[in-house]
Nucleic acid binder design. Structure first.
Lengths: 346, 346
DNA sequence: CTGAAAGCGCTAACAA
DNA sequence: TTGTTAGCGCTTTCAG
């Protein structure tokens, strides 16, 4: 069916290997024949067969991207499309293809990754999440397969190339902001503590409280998928406390939106009755009501850096494990307000 | 490096071709040898090389997914992850891989698709969008390459397999709902009229108005990217009209969220001052405030159907072009309310 | 039911 | 600078 390298070679009056060299942009080849071959390729509508190349080359020029999907709507978080955009931009530029593996369950995701690796379909893998004791990471490590994770590995941190924010500082800064506004009873709402990102952000929250001499209470921490049943109740309990919080640090913008909505139902207004801050600065956080004060983690850039790292690593297997911290900054918007009844001065 | 079919053959004391037959689950092969070969494969940790298979086979067992990305945040619409989930589920089940092509511009997307097709990396393609006069579609048609589009083709509709909702009916139904609540001045806000989906939904809106004998006014239609500058202004103009609308049909949930937010800034309340309805029923529409009355188009199912269609088509090239309409239903929530000052009875 | 052998389209020594 | 040749790992006739 298709035009092959041989056809082109014949037409241009050269050997197939010469054509191959032209494709690869090999240096030692005369301009004259290069031009001639290229002309023939154009005329005949030649396009290299990637599978044949990969086979001969032992390299697929493509990278795998693994993302959680699942029942719990994780994938609906605009974080993913945005990070994908970043990855995709670089991949495109460097002439890499993107293979997607998603899975509803951990098993499915592992299967997907195994398939990618075993079948030689990808040269490297980017993980879009990081959780404790992840079989996917163990597998990749075991296979000594190039990969980078977006987020922070829970173990063997020095062996694993990763691109992350300084979530502890982010949590600290944003909490300090709340404190500077006079809030003293500040609660934290986050997802599963199996996710490193939750843990880090919470640690920052804790640090800020301690530095300010404010109490770090168990009752002020709720971990919940939130979006699931039970999540609402957990939040309700927070406000049933004798001393309910006046400020909320929430680990994710999307959760914030849910919380704002819930509060509204209880006749609590943000920011009048309660200030909230969160993380990610997804596009929605700007158009929602109120616009959210949030830590902008530069999602797109996370994707860009991860792709660059991975490609570098794929090209040169001896690249050492790296750690790249993408700086954050804080978007001050209107979900926060000075606390009107502080019990002391700051 | 890896274990090859030859190694397995040697170990099992058979010919490579026999091993190949076992992999392909060929019928004419004795249970005995099959078992022996499988045992060897397990023991040696054999995994077939996908590139070699694809090359020999002329089929890649993978499908390409094309989605717009772009500056204008289109990709941040939770529609995409959700439809991907549907596609991915089926792909996984049928043992297909997913290759992603995105692009910020039309040119980039076309390049991505050309690469996929020319390089023989995919057996078929799913387009996640549909716009007028799309070069990608023309290319695919020209190449006679299997593809399905999610949405409605703008031309050659009988030649192109597509999975869609009946957006005209959807628009009509949801508008009728507003009318039944006593609204008479109903405006439409949608994205670019280059997108078929916008046009269809608007047509439904028009039909409902006409059936009810209500005016279909130019001033009551705004087309805007909305999320970009200028969008806000367009909406503002709507409310600067001598007779501003009391009901809004909005082509997309995400836009609705933006509109609600904007209205708030002008001290207009939804649904008290204004009722709005929209489309898609993305997860957010339930947790936003107010929860949106919206047409649930069953995004996940769109993905599932598209994947099934495409795989069927890939396996049997003679499959005729199909058209699959995924039924919608309406989620009644709290963004609508009876109009308190109708000028006439319904 | 199984084996031998010829490719699939491309690359990479090794020669020239 | 270019050609020859031997694979990359798998499938698939064609014999047997």
């Amino acid at each position: 069916m298709g035009v092959t390298i041989k056809d082109v070679a014949k037409a241009a009056g050269v050997a197939p290997s010469t054509v191959s060299r032209v494709i690869a942009d090999h240096p030692r080849i005369s301009e004259a024949t290069k031009k001639r071959v290229k002309k023939a390729m154009k005329e005949m509508g030649y396009h290299p067969n990637a599978n044949a190349r990969s086979l001969a080359n032992r390299s697929s020029q493509s990278i795998g991207v693994v993302m959680p999907s699942s029942a719990d709507k994780a994938l609906q978080n605009p974080f993913f499309p945005e990070v994908l955009r970043g990855i995709s931009g670089i991949a495109h530029k460097m002439d890499y293809s993107l293979l997607l593996a998603t899975g509803e369950t951990g098993t499915e995701m592992l299967e997907g990754v195994e398939r990618m690796v075993y079948s030689n379909r990808v040269d490297g893998i980017i993980l879009l999440y990081s959780q404790i004791d992840d079989p996917v990471i163990n597998f990749l490590l075991e296979q000594n397969f190039p990969f980078v994770i977006i987020g922070k590995p829970s173990e063997r941190i020095d062996e694993i190339t990763h691109v992350d924010n300084d979530n502890v500082s982010g949590g600290r800064e944003i909490t300090k902001h709340l404190i500077s506004l006079g809030h003293e009873r500040i609660a934290f709402i986050g997802g599963s503590t199996d996710l490193i990102v939750t843990v880090d952000r919470m640690r920052g929250y804790q640090m800020a409280l301690e530095e300010a001499g404010l109490p770090y209470l168990d009752e002020y921490r709720v971990h919940t998928e939130f979006l699931k049943s039970g999540g609402q109740q957990a939040v309700n309990e927070l406000f049933a406390l004798p001393e309910p919080p006046t400020g909320l640090v929430i680990a994710d913008d999307l959760m914030s939106i849910g919380v704002v909505n819930m509060l509204e139902e209880c006749n609590k207004r943000v920011p009048d009755d309660l200030s909230i801050v969160s993380f990610n600065n997804v596009y929605l956080s700007e158009i929602t009501r109120p616009p959210l004060t949030t830590v902008d983690i530069h999602i797109y850039e996370l994707g860009v850096q991860a792709a660059k790292c991975l490609i570098a690593k794929v090209k040169d297997k001896t690249e050492p494990a790296k750690r790249i911290i993408v700086p954050f900054d804080i978007k001050y918007r209107s979900s926060t307000k000075a606390n009107e009844a502080p019990t002391r001065n700051i």
